[in-house]
């Protein structure tokens, strides 16, 4: 299935918002962190895993999802959260550690929860997979519409939880799709050094489910493959594993010097940046004009700026709030 022009524009807009969001976070993150780099300083503390370059994975998949569908994501969650429709103001505020954040400042950027759109993520590799399988099980048992999508990185495919979750989902024929964002690097370790096979979609065969590989970080190709897998899940035919070749245009996290990258790799990746590529495609094939593009860019920036302003202007939590919400 090919995406309509409207769907393509939706994907493009989410990619723009996501990229501007990350670029804004990147700038603000560095405030207060020089001359000595200390993660705890500045308006955005802690680790920061940016998703620049990985936007196609999020939009190509989430274009098929309803708010009632469940998504679990990773320690690098912003692009997926945005594509799933997570409240941007409150996500920004959470990243700033503010009272108005989705979790009131208790979670931070690796722990974004928005039950209104059934989004969660986890800072531990492959941890969201079991809960995604369980969410799919609850839908199946309740005879309710809705599927689960578990996003993970290629490094997660070497976790025991990955194999256990695929097997369980297949044995019980659950409505779940596993989406691997293969950005080629597990922090500093290349996929080739950590993974015994070249492509993780081949591992689907071991669990009797379809496996698909999507090359080229292409949102339109991802849309097609994800659409098939999601429809299959909705029809009750069981799980699918998808591996997407994507690019991490940033370091593993802010402050990563990326000395492990081969010379010239980053330049080559930027040359294949999926956002300008999609823009060119829209202009060439969908009659997208420069003026329309400028307006959409403007609108996307404004939306991000508003979220950042909301976060900056919000109050910090009161210290006593650290102690609540341990039990209902």
């Amino acid at each position: 299935m090919k995406p309509s022009k409207e769907q393509q524009l939706w994907m493009y807009e989410q990619m723009l918002v996501s990229r501007y969001f990350e670029e804004s976070i990147e700038k603000i993150y560095m405030e207060g962190k020089s001359p000595a780099f200390n993660m705890a300083n500045g308006p955005i503390p802690g680790e920061m895993h940016l998703s620049n370059g990985q936007e196609p994975c999020a939009v190509g998949v989430c274009a098929h999802l309803e708010p009632s569908d469940i998504v679990t994501s990773t320690h690098r969650p912003h692009h997926v959260a945005i594509a799933k429709g997570v409240d941007l103001d409150r996500m920004a505020a959470e990243i700033f550690g503010k009272k108005t954040g989705l979790s009131g400042g208790r979670g931070g950027h690796m722990h974004i929860f928005d039950p209104k759109v059934n989004f969660s993520c986890s800072g531990i590799i492959a941890q969201g997979m079991g809960p995604a399988v369980g969410a799919a099980l609850s839908r199946q048992m309740q005879r309710k519409a809705g599927i689960a999508v578990a996003f993970l990185g290629e490094g997660a495919a070497n976790q025991g939880a990955f194999h256990e979750s695929l097997n369980l989902a297949a044995v019980w024929k659950l409505p779940v799709v596993f989406v691997i964002e293969d950005n080629a690097w597990g922090i500093s370790v290349a996929k080739s050094a950590s993974t015994a096979i070249e492509r993780n979609d081949q591992r689907a065969a071991a669990y009797g489910m379809p496996g698909h590989f999507v090359p080229g970080n292409d949102p339109l190709a991802i849309y097609e493959v994800a659409g098939e897998a999601i429809q299959r899940a909705r029809r009750g035919e069981g799980p699918t594993l998808i591996e997407i070749e994507t690019y991490r245009l940033a370091g593993h996290f802010m402050g990563d010097a990326e000395g492990y990258r081969p010379q010239g790799e980053k330049d080559a990746l930027f040359a294949r940046d999926p956002i300008p590529k999609l823009r060119e495609h829209l202009k060439a094939s969908e009659g997208w004009s420069d003026a329309e593009d400028a307006a959409l860019v403007e609108r996307s920036r404004a939306r991000v700026d508003a979220a950042i302003a909301f976060a900056r202007d919000s109050a910090y939590p009161d210290p006593e709030e650290a102690l609540d919400k341990v039990f209902v």
Binding site: I70, Q127, M129, G130, P131, A132, V133, G134, A135, A136, L137, S138, R139, M141, Q142, A148, G160, A161, E164, S165, N167, L168, V171
Partner: peptide, 19 residues
């Protein structure tokens, strides 16, 4: 299956999902 991590994780997901 003999998969404690997956079936306890699935229990969590199912509990959040209303079971």
């Amino acid at each position: 299956p003999l998969s404690e991590s997956a079936f306890v994780g699935a229990g969590i997901g199912a509990a959040i999902g209303g079971m």
